[in-house]
Nucleic acid binder design. Structure first.
Lengths: 121, 121
DNA sequence: CATATGTACTACATTAAGGTGGTATAATAA
DNA sequence: TTATTATACCACCTTAATGTAGTACATATG
């Protein structure tokens, strides 16, 4: 039962539009569904729909689900103990860049990727 | 003939210290030599030596030789025409981060990686 | 019940990166 | 000339990521 005003897309439709195999797309979508980004609707007239509005899903959520956000937080030199108080030799030059990147991920939503040029990736 | 004051390392020695196979290391070193980061000295008493002091080799040089620095310069949305004058929807938030990252690569040398924790990479 | 959806599980193919190993050759110091 | 070094090919292996395919099953609408 659909109680959302968001559009429902079937695997068949998406596979055609994206020109990737139906079965493969389904597997990816099922994974995204388990990760909570989309909801799946089984049965006739079913399909996939965003679990919440795309403007509420942050890039950091996706990065975290796919590869873990931790990779972005560590010391560039690989030191466990590196911090503002106990900086490695590159901490002061690199940490601000890293922090800006993280805040970019935390503040940008997938809705903002609407105009992306997919063919470049 | 060696006319440098920098230390010469043989493949055999490096392979032992780094515990990777001699043959494999040689292949990587020959590649680095062709890319100009090190010089190889053939014959008895030969080996490898930095082509210039490590404090003159920038991360950007290495990135460029290995994967091409262009990948770091493009628009995050993949638009060819994106620029300060004709910005994509994320240009103003992302471009400054990208530019800081590039200047980090341009201004950091491999000499500064001396204390890196190799086991983390 | 019939039909159109998604799910689960399995098996295998493809590609790229990373790595191993052999043999022959070129260069150079001693 | 001999020993020690690097170079050039070549063939193959391993691993991980990505993609393809088949079959059976669960779910929901009408």
């Amino acid at each position: 039962m659909i109680n959302s005003d968001m559009q429902v897309f079937t695997a068949k439709h998406l596979a055609e539009v994206l020109t990737i195999p139906d079965k493969y797309l389904r597997r990816l979508m099922t994974d995204m569904s388990k990760k909570g980004f989309i909801k799946s609707i089984q049965g006739r007239e079913g399909g996939y729909v965003f679990a919440k509005n795309a403007s509420k899903i942050y890039l950091s959520d996706v990065v975290d689900a796919v590869e873990g956000i931790e990779r972005y937080n560590g010391c560039i030199m690989g030191h466990e103990t590196c911090s503002d108080e106990n900086p490695c030799s590159l901490h002061n030059t690199y940490a601000p860049i890293r922090d800006h990147l993280i805040s970019f991920l935390l503040n940008t939503t997938i809705a903002e990727l609407k105009d992306i040029n997919i063919s470049k990736f």
